[in-house]
Design a protein around this nucleic acid. Structure first.
Length: 306
DNA sequence: CGCAGTCAAGGCCTT
DNA sequence: AAGGCCTTGACTGCG
């Protein structure tokens, strides 16, 4: 199934409340600075999270899901803790095992580092932190021995608007294990598909088309046109795209309500839907209800056909 | 145990 | 000026 799952797999707990089976734990900077975390404690959190990933991988294999975005917070505070706490042979070997499983089952793995990755900031510290964050994601993919290709995407946004020159320069200076996997996603405010196209032409970084974001920042081109432009940046590689929806009841309210992602699928642009049905593109399903939303959608479309 | 307030980070839009 | 949102809610302290 080329509908992609994003990070979490939800299941009902004993109380009937949906929970992420990954059981991801995090660390807080303030507590870290106050020496509340021993190395053992940090290691315990990392171990908990990496074994949580094993549970999710089992689920997606059982359910024939072929595209999965790995959570960016398996190893919290990577850029602050002693690097050896996460970049070591033990965790490498576990990721290697996951990589074998992933390749055996033909699963596409992607990552999407957070909004704090900005390669266009005017603050050099922000650029440094961004590269450090990207390095961590590339390390994960390297440890899984996944190809240096945007098929295994490290997907980011453009950051600060009107900074194409800075973005191109900083992308071209990235280490190869980051750059060769990088993809650029159109966003609601700063970079639409047309703007990314120019950057893509000069960096060879393909465009991860987000149909929801496009509706906020069209660049005066149609969704179908934007779709086609993005598709062409991928060459022979199967394009990666995103789908999310506005909650129907919030359709006419404020910008910030409309940009929020709905729990379930309400609509799927025809051009994306058809390409996905033909298995020409992978579509990551950015719905709050995760796997539940994917299967709810499949059930609904089945009912339509029958 | 449940609950409320809080949490590292960028950049944008709304109010 | 401050709050909310995005990717991905979880942690902490209090009663």
């Amino acid at each position: 199934m080329s509908l992609g799952l994003v990070c979490h797999w939800l299941e009902k707990n004993k109380k009937g409340v949906y929970e992420n089976i990954l059981g991801e734990r995090s660390l807080q900077l303030t507590s870290y600075k106050n020496n509340k975390y021993s190395n053992d404690y940090i290691n315990e959190v990392y171990k908990n999270n990496i074994f949580g990933l094993d549970k999710v991988l089992s689920k997606i294999i059982q359910n024939n899901i072929k595209c999965y975005r790995i959570s960016s917070s398996l190893f919290p505070l990577t850029d602050i803790v002693d690097r050896n706490l996460w970049d070591n042979n033990y965790y490498r070997s576990i990721f290697k095992k996951y990589g074998d499983l992933i390749k055996k089952n033909n699963i596409r793995i992607t990552c999407h580092p957070g909004q704090f990755v900005s390669l266009t900031s005017l603050n050099s510290e922000v650029i440094r932190n961004s590269i450090s964050e990207l390095d961590y994601h590339a390390w994960m993919l390297d440890s899984m021995e996944l190809d240096l290709s945007p098929y295994y995407a490290i997907n980011i946004h453009g950051g600060k608007r009107d900074s194409a020159d800075i973005l191109i320069k900083n992308i071209n200076n990235l280490p190869n294990n980051i750059k060769s996997r990088l993809t650029l996603e159109n966003d609601e405010c700063s970079y639409n598909v047309l703007q990314l196209k120019q950057i893509s032409d000069l960096t060879k970084v393909p465009i991860c088309f987000d149909s929801h974001h496009h509706t906020f920042n069209t660049g005066n081109i149609t969704l179908n046109n934007a779709y086609e432009i993005a598709i062409k940046t991928w060459g022979d590689i199967k394009p990666l795209q995103h789908l999310s929806n506005t909650n129907p009841e919030e359709y006419l309210t404020s910008f910030q309500d409309r940009r929020k992602h709905s729990d379930f699928v309400h609509y799927f642009p025809a051009i994306q839907y058809e390409a996905n049905m033909k298995n020409e593109i992978d579509v990551e399903m950015e719905f709050k209800m995760k796997n539940i939303a994917i299967f709810d959608w499949l059930k609904k479309t089945c009912n339509k056909i029958n």
